[in-house]
Amino acid sequence: MSRKADEIMAADTLKDAKKLQASFISTEPFQESSKEKEKEKDNNKLFHIHERNVSDEISERTFQDVSLCYQCGKCSAGCPVRYYMDIAPNKVVRFIQLGYYEEALKSETPWLCAGCLACSVRCPKEFDLAKFMDAVREIAIEKGVEIKQENILKFHKAFLDQIKNHGRSYEVGLVAEYKMKTLDLFQDVDSAPGMFLKGKLDLLPHNIKNRKEIKSIFKKTSGKK
């Protein structure tokens, strides 16, 4: 995180933060590089209104206004995985509120969020942070942002591939595909054989009958929004 971003994050009010942000001339909106856009950027230093902004996109997808969050930090205080994250969950919201989309979308935090919903039920503003994190991840994938927690994404892809092919999860296929993708060949070597011996893992997948329907759902939902 840049020093400037830190200063902005520390501002007392949203108004102060936006003033500070405007004073930093080098403020760079996310994924803007062409000369034309540079010009436009000068006209809109305060808000990145030249493209459909990520903040509005998230508000729309989650049916809740991102500006609802007043940064009390209760979510981060009670988050069971905060310790493993690069930035606190409430800070991801702050970055989005202030237009620092790249900082938010590149953060590891949304990927480490376990979706336990503790934050969502505790929020004094009833802001559903877990749902917000879903939207951040979804947009990060759509924009092709580099995902630092790549193994987590590879796991989700491998899991969904099983559903796409069989209609149900297939743990042997999942683990095999995950290991191929990550080349992490030795983890779980102690538990997988045990699962076979106990008859818990089936060698063959449970294929549902109407796999055509599942394939069609995947196909129709795979495009960008």
């Binding site: 994190m133 939207a135 979804e138 899991f159 969904l160 559903i163 795979s222």
Partner: peptide, 10 residues
């Protein structure tokens, strides 16, 4: 988990 963290429609 894998569907809702990556693709809401799906």
């Amino acid at each position: 988990t894998s569907a809702h963290v990556t693709n809401h429609k799906l």
